[in-house]
Amino acid sequence: MRAAVYRRFGSADVVSVEEIPTPKPGPEEVLIRVLASTVSAADHRARSHDIPKGLGLLAGVGLGFFQPRRRVLGMDAAGVVEAVGEKITRFTPGDEVIAMLGAKFGGHAEFARIGRDGPITAKPANLGFAESVALVFGGITARAFLNRTDIHPGTRVLVNGASGAVGTAAVQLATDLGAHVTAVCAARNAGLVTALGADRVIDYESSDFTTEPDTYDVIMDCVGNASFDRVQQLITPGGALLAVITDLNGLLRAKSRTRTSGKLVSASGVDCRTEDLRFLVGLAEQGGLRPVIDRSYDLSEIVAAHRFVDAGHKRGSVVLRIAGPA
């Protein structure tokens, strides 16, 4: 099969399309013929080893220290079930699915495997494969963090980094729950996040939201520059900081800050669940969650796709078309 492979850490140029063996599903695995994946910020960090401060050792355990442990990136996939193991009863060949491969990666290839207990479900009936896969990485991450606190009609939520894959999903999911959403992003993306449901937009290039008098029940940081020390005065009593991206200091001090402040500081990783994928699919089919795609690339254009993501200004998702129309 064709796959985008990297054998050392570095710039986008370390990735190339190669022929590698096609995986075979084990007894409890599903083999997906991948039609679309995304090139995410997580792929950028894994490939470049651009890791938040202090987390190099921890990241090395999962990604590798001197060379990649897993040579095919891609944390999500949309496609058609090619084959199933003998113990799989929930899927049959021909089923159209989406899956979150997570830290095992593997989506940037013509075929990918996932265990039967992994997050995989039928894709939205009203969306194509490219649109469907654009919901997965950002949607499952945003939902996992938002579920850690109580969001209801009238809750004031600020999403820092509202125009990225996680941010655009967070704006929509919070809006669906009835929250009043403030989006922090560049001015050029104000129209996008407003269309997704944001009630107010702060242009980070001209204003620093941390110096404004407004307070919020929940701050969701998708950028990594809104530490608890920097934003704690903006969080209402009993509120929450959801740190999607943080450094070692933020990770280690999250529990103690929660105890001493009475405000939830959540910085742990995402537990990817099938039930969350199903929720996203249902919401998408009802029109409450729409994919945001900045650009799409063919697998042969993988280097250009990585370069675009490396620039750090993508809106929503960058889709990678693996084979044929997606």
Rank of each mutant, 00 (worst) to 15 (best):
Gly287Cys: 08
Gly287Tyr: 11
Gly288Val: 00
Val281Lys: 09
Asp276His: 11
Ile293His: 09
Arg278Tyr: 01
Val281Arg: 13
Ile293Gly: 13
Asp271Gly: 02
Asp276Thr: 11
Ala284Asn: 10
Ser268Tyr: 12
Arg273Val: 00
Ser268Lys: 09
Leu289Asp: 09
Glu285Phe: 03
Leu289Met: 13
Gly269Arg: 13
Leu289Asn: 07
Gly287Phe: 07
Val281Phe: 04
Asp271Arg: 10
Arg295Ser: 02
Arg273Trp: 01
Ala284Asp: 08
Ser296Cys: 01
Gly282Glu: 15
Gly288Thr: 00
Arg278Val: 11
Pro291Asp: 05
Ile293Trp: 07
Gln286Leu: 06
Arg290Val: 04
Val292Ile: 10
Asp271Ala: 10
Arg273Glu: 11
Cys272Tyr: 15
Ser296Arg: 14
Val281Thr: 12
Ile293Met: 06
Tyr297Asp: 05
Gly282Leu: 11
Ser268Cys: 00
Thr274Cys: 02
Gln286Glu: 15
Val281Glu: 08
Leu289Cys: 04
Asp294Asn: 13
Arg290Thr: 09
Asp271Lys: 13
Val270Tyr: 14
Ser268Asp: 13
Gly269Leu: 11
Gly287His: 11
Val281Asn: 05
Thr274Asn: 04
Val281His: 04
Phe279Trp: 11
Arg295His: 13
Ile293Lys: 08
Phe279Cys: 02
Ile293Thr: 08
Ser268Phe: 13
Tyr297Glu: 06
Asp294Arg: 06
Glu275His: 06
Leu277Cys: 03
Leu277Asp: 04
Leu280Gln: 05
Arg290Glu: 10
Leu289Tyr: 12
Gly282Ala: 07
Arg290His: 12
Asp276Ile: 03
Arg290Cys: 03
Arg273Met: 02
Arg278Ala: 04
Arg290Gln: 13
Ala284Cys: 05
Gly287Thr: 07
Ile293Pro: 10
Arg290Gly: 07
Arg278Asp: 05
Tyr297His: 07
Leu277Gln: 03
Asp271His: 12
Gly282Gln: 14
Arg278Ile: 05
Arg295Gln: 13
Ala284Trp: 07
Val292Trp: 06
Ala284Met: 06
Arg273Asn: 03
Gly287Trp: 06
Val270His: 14
Arg295Phe: 00
Val292Gly: 10
Gly282Trp: 14
Asp276Leu: 02
Phe279Pro: 01
Thr274Tyr: 07
Ser296Asn: 03
Val270Arg: 14
Gly287Leu: 04
Arg295Trp: 01
Ala284Val: 01
Val292Asn: 10
Glu285Thr: 02
Leu277Met: 06
Leu280Lys: 05
Glu275Ser: 13
Asp271Asn: 13
Phe279Leu: 13
Leu280Pro: 06
Tyr297Lys: 08
Arg290Lys: 14
Ala284Phe: 08
Val292Asp: 09
Gln286Asp: 14
Ser296Ala: 12
Arg278Leu: 02
Val292Lys: 07
Glu275Lys: 12
Ile293Ser: 08
Arg295Lys: 11
Gly269His: 09
Val270Leu: 12
Leu280Glu: 03
Thr274Trp: 04
Arg273Gly: 02
Gly269Pro: 04
Thr274Gly: 06
Gly282Asn: 15
Gly287Val: 03
Glu275Ile: 00
Arg278Gln: 15
Ile293Cys: 07
